[in-house]
């Protein structure tokens, strides 16, 4: 069971790492935290996050949750900014290929576990899937009250007036709620929760989602969860209802509307285009024959 990764240089001390990196006791500890997180939707369960062989802030929480959940039959997908091929997504996928030897995929529909940073896939998730979020700051109240000792008390009392005041101050100042990502939600009518820095565009996907959603914050040592089919409401006001971003144009590659787009700067004369942030969604649509306004140009480029 112990896969040894051993140094080859003559002078190197002998070093061995555990299979799947985390030791069994650590996995048990994380698994117990996950179970309590599921039982108390939106509540941040403290856990003894381990030091991972990747930097804090780069997905150590998500990686630990994924490592605790993964089994030999799982198929793993890892995305960062919606894309499978961003460098950090590649690095994390490679970590699990190496340490857990699980099958990986870029196809949203084929994955049983999806680890993500900053996006929820466009394709509707199913009951057989688990979405694992990487979380930098799990505390939705952190930027209003930096002290853990204080915020814990506010959660215990379900005292969320501060959050509403902050959102309302935005409206007074800017005419809009100025929070565009990591937009706070109320889970199952009790806890206010930070959905991680996903654009608020993705917030509605969390509500009544058939998949289990798990959130891991390694540096801050917190795990939280949204069980399937759970009510998730983005905070708002009657006169300023929650609304998501709309893009004026469809994706330039696949023509999709109602999806989240990345802006790409084409030249220094103001030329820009908008393309799907979810690369799998975009590629699938293109393969199905959906084309955006710049799709032909892309083909011409490939042909050269």
């Amino acid at each position: 069971m112990n896969a040894m990764v051993t140094g080859s240089e003559a002078e190197m001390p002998e070093i061995g790492y555990n299979f799947a990196y985390l030791d069994e006791q650590t996995k048990r500890m994380i698994r117990r935290a996950i179970l309590k997180a599921i039982a108390i939707p939106g509540y941040q369960v403290p856990f003894a996050a381990r030091e991972m062989p990747m930097p804090y802030g780069w997905g150590t929480g998500g990686v630990q949750v994924t490592a605790a959940v993964l089994g030999p039959d799982d198929v793993l997908k890892v995305i960062d900014q919606g894309a499978d091929d961003t460098t950090n997504a590649v690095a994390i996928r490679g970590f699990f290929e190496k340490t857990a030897r699980v099958a990986t995929t870029t196809r949203t529909g084929e994955a049983s576990v999806i680890q993500t940073r900053h996006r929820i896939p466009e394709q509707k998730l199913s009951e057989d899937q688990i979405l694992v979020y990487q979380v930098p700051i799990p505390e939705p109240l952190r930027f209003l009250e930096p002290r853990e000792t204080e915020t814990r008390e506010l959660h215990a009392l379900a005292e969320y007036g501060l959050m509403h005041v902050k959102l309302y101050e935005d409206i007074a100042r800017h005419g809009h709620i100025a929070t565009t990502y990591a937009y706070p939600v109320e889970v199952a009518g009790r806890y206010v929760m930070d959905p991680s820095p996903i654009p608020k565009f993705d917030n509605p996907k969390m509500d009544d989602c058939p998949a289990l959603q798990l959130f891991g914050a390694g540096r801050e040592k917190r795990i939280y969860a949204i069980p399937p089919y759970t009510r998730v409401v983005s905070l708002d006001f009657e006169d300023h209802p929650f609304e998501v971003q709309h893009f004026a144009k469809p994706c330039a590659m696949c023509g999709a509307r109602g999806v989240y787009l990345d802006e790409v700067i084409l030249d220094d004369r103001g030329g820009r285009m908008f393309v799907c942030s979810d690369t799998d969604h975009c590629e699938t649509r293109q393969a199905e024959g959906h084309h955006g306004e710049m799709w032909g140009g892309m083909l011409a480029e490939d042909a050269r």
């Binding site: 804090y56 780069w58 900014q81 654009p199 989240y260 990345d262």
Partner: peptide
């Protein structure tokens, strides 16, 4: 310092999804 350096340095990871959200709001305003 391992925690600190990780979180400070994570700012160099792509954040374009969130930046796009901010950009959209600033343009609108």
């Amino acid at each position: 310092n391992v925690q600190a350096t990780g979180f400070v340095e994570h700012l160099k990871l792509p954040h374009y999804v969130d930046f796009q959200a901010e950009l959209d709001l600033v343009r609108r305003m």
